[in-house]
Design a protein around this nucleic acid. Structure first.
Lengths: 256, 256
DNA sequence: AAACAGCGTTTCATATAATGAAACGTTTTT
DNA sequence: AAAAACGTTTCATTATATGAAACGCTGTTT
């Protein structure tokens, strides 16, 4: 827990390490479980959880397990970074989802990863479901590849320097030169495809969103199972998504 | 900072007291400002802010002020309490807002207050704008009065015992007996009005959302300026909102 | 029915880590 | 040029977080 530790408050770090455990599938935690996971002493864990509960950051359910509490919901909704983007993306995403009937995502590049700012889920039973606020690898998602393709050359090279192109499926692009070629192609055709590069059976298409200085600021993607997502639909999908992108670009550049 | 303090971690409490300062209009804070506001020592404040920044809970902007960071956005989106309600309310709210063109809210009763879980803002320039995740007084909002009106008698009496009906405007109901009569009326007519009881110039109408045991679980409201919100529209509004309520009730009771 | 194992919780001596006044180096204002 | 305001660092002091052990409780196993 060290290295070049400045002068950080250890209790606060521990408290948030405990909260970090709730990022993932497991939503309910007991004291001993969390103590085991984090390596903190049972007593310490107990007292920290107790503290967090007393202020609504955690909440106990009927079986006395801890859940993330509404104080975090409150604080999370106050985060001003990208707030305007989130707001203006909402209705266009709904519209796209209504027309295409697949899950639509809206994301930006943050810390060299895709950060999902908003989504609208497909009304169909079989669908992609991502967590808003979560991060995903950029190099094997359509949305991430678009965001990189329209970034500056320095940024792309810096990305490749810092990121290992580890395979997620057999289709993942793992060679840097092939990847750079892919980005060039994306920039030229103005959209990206993810042909089961992140997950087998999952296909995505993404389009860039620009500000009025023509810099990329976000991207919209549509994701669906390969069983439904046919290449002959791409032209149709592109025109529907582009309408949404237009709407977002207009409202961002005019109203904010 | 005491009374019957159990055994809480003071640093963690302080950290969240600092974060609490961001609840409100002021989004950007400096070290000394926050130290002054909270009463904590400058050094302590500095170190806590530093700690929170190191893990993304806070973030510095270009002028070196602290903002709420994306870690809180991530955690806030993971809060599972009422998650299903939030999700299923989204599309019906959009639909209502499209038809009525006023701001639509979706809320529940939490700690004797209205907790706003979702909203869709009016497309018009002059509009109501509330913060999702924030709390509002129940006794002078349409949404709160509906939620109370369909609660059990014990709950209502407990509410009145704990809550002072302080006036917000000249129209606020401040007499307990008048208020109880109002709740009875609301229960009978199955909707509530807020005739400028919270804020002058602001009118709202709200309808209950029930689960399949016929218990109230939430409420939808439409809010608009008195200049646009005419009593002759109420019948029309009610039928539009009821469609949305139906949609929510169906999806909640079937899919979850 | 008794023993056991799991849980959250409390105790208390110990040591660690949080604390704050003062001083520092910058930047902004006067 | 001086002063004020800012974030930051120092260091001796002391308050507080710590963890092993014991506790009481609940549900399961013997």
């Amino acid at each position: 827990m060290n290295e070049d530790v400045k002068d950080l408050n250890l209790s606060v770090l521990k408290a948030f390490t405990l909260l970090e455990a709730f990022v993932g599938d497991k939503q309910k935690w007991g004291v001993r479980e969390l103590a085991k996971k984090t390596g903190y002493n049972k007593s310490t864990t107990y007292r920290l959880l107790n503290t967090l509960e007393s202020i609504g950051v955690l909440q106990k359910n009927d079986e006395d397990k801890y859940l993330l509490g509404l104080k975090l919901f409150e604080l999370g909704n106050l985060v001003s970074i990208h707030k305007s983007l989130r707001k203006h993306s909402r209705q266009p995403l709904e519209q796209i989802a209504r027309e295409i009937k697949e899950t639509v995502h809206f994301g930006v590049l943050d810390k060299n990863q895709v950060l999902y700012l908003n989504k609208t889920e497909s009304p169909q039973g079989l669908k992609v479901s991502t967590q808003i606020g979560s991060y995903q690898k950029a190099y094997c998602t359509a949305i991430g590849k678009v965001l990189l393709a329209f970034s500056s050359e320095e940024k792309i090279l810096e990305y490749l320097k810092k990121t290992a192109l580890d395979p997620c499926t057999v289709n993942t692009i793992t060679d840097q030169h092939v990847f750079l070629k892919e980005l060039q192609k994306i920039k030229k055709q103005e959209y990206a495809l993810d042909m089961e590069e992140l997950e087998l059976g999952l296909i995505c298409i993404a389009i860039p969103v620009f500000n009025n200085k023509n810099q990329i600021i976000a991207s919209i993607s549509v994701s669906g199972p390969s069983s439904r997502f046919k290449l002959e639909n791409i032209g149709n999908y592109l025109s529907i998504i582009k309408k949404g992108v237009q709407a977002i670009e207009n409202s961002i550049n005019n109203y904010n």
